[in-house]
Write a protein that binds this DNA or RNA. Structure first.
Lengths: 205, 205
DNA sequence: GTAATAACTTGACACTGTCAAGATCGGTAG
DNA sequence: CTACCGATCTTGACAGTGTCAAGTTATTAC
């Protein structure tokens, strides 16, 4: 009765809730997560979680935030991990990494960019900050690609960043939401998208 | 007591349900629609709707289907309505029309392309057919643009269609889901996206 | 007119999120 | 060591959800 047993005080409930909730969501989607089942699964009463998260929205925000951090870690390391690639190839890799993340963590992705939080619920301050940081990173990188003439510089950096991100996001959603079903085509779709966004190399016509 | 009164048989319940449900959704989103409130609003008992729609999913499918038809009507008429435009401009118009539709009917758009139906529920046969027709139309048009050298022909038509559609869809979702909030930038974002997807006109570099 | 059937209602069940009030424990002040 | 306090957890309750089963009523077919 030393650990994970029936103490009145769980001791580490907050983190346990986060972990279990993430697991449930990864397995069955956001809709598979109910506060009650979560509590049940962890072995506490229905309302115990409310002492660690204001409400369900707060829990979801915390999970989404972790997702952003994980995602940021992956993409922000790409350039220094592949110094041999030229900018075109690096952009493609970026695109593919993004898509792969969404594909391997579909439910987390849903939470990170879903209306559940951003429209219906309200994103926590922390979530706002973390996601902003991700977009900021993307924005800076787009700017670099513009000065290197790999992306168009005929339009403002912000617009190019929004439009290109929208492409990635759109691909992910179409697959994630079950509209496109052929996940096998994923890579090829990503490559096509990357190629279309990039300025055609001089003389490609 | 001849019309819209308290007959035991409503007489036109199916259509009334569709209309009312569409109205409720347009106003407060899919989540604002509950079978019980809908029935209440129409003035019938909780389970009356179930005699006209197998379940909530079936109702949503019917609404989504109507959305596809409405959307198809708009975009399929564009070419003949604007014969003076060149292909570049027409593509941009197409993009803008798509975005405007999603912007003016955000909740319907949600339903048409949301996981509510496609992933969690199951799309009706009719919905499948209608949406397929829409994509088919898009596909054929992309093919034309490829042969006219306005879009890249370095990649298969299907891939180009998927990638370009994903861009539109991504933009719509980012705005629709509350991730981008500046709806004023909508048109400009659409134009930037269109420009990036199109092959740069010869000599633009 | 009677029988079949379509349309509708009431009752019930198992869920959901979350509030209010009470129980129990761990740590600290005296 | 004791008394208390606040953090933590529990039980009870409420209003809401989708939908099934069984009963009621009106319309239609013969």
């Amino acid at each position: 009765m030393n650990q994970t047993k029936k103490h009145y005080h769980h001791g580490d409930l907050r983190q346990t809730l986060l972990d279990t909730a993430t697991a449930i969501i990864s397995e069955g989607g956001v809709d598979a997560l109910s506060m009650r089942k979560l509590a049940d699964h962890v072995g506490v009463s229905r309302t115990a979680p409310y002492h660690h998260f204001k409400d369900k929205n707060a829990l979801l925000c915390a999970i989404a935030e972790a997702g952003f951090k994980q995602h940021f870690e992956v993409v922000s390391l790409l350039p220094q991990q592949h110094p041999q690639l030229d900018k075109h190839a690096l952009f493609e890799l970026y695109v593919l990494s993004y898509i792969r993340f969404a594909d391997s963590n579909p439910e987390t992705y849903d939470l990170m960019f879903g209306k559940e939080i951003w429209k219906l619920g309200q994103p926590s301050e922390a979530l706002h900050a973390t996601s902003r940081q991700c977009f900021q990173h993307w924005l800076e990188w787009i700017e670099v690609l513009q000065t290197e003439k790999v992306l168009t510089d005929q339009h403002p950096t912000l617009r190019v960043a929004q439009a290109s991100w929208a492409t990635l996001h759109g691909l992910c959603r179409l697959l994630n939401d079950g509209i496109y079903v052929n996940r096998d085509d994923l890579e090829e779709m990503g490559k096509t998208a990357a190629a279309m966004l990039l300025k055609s190399p001089a003389g490609a016509d």
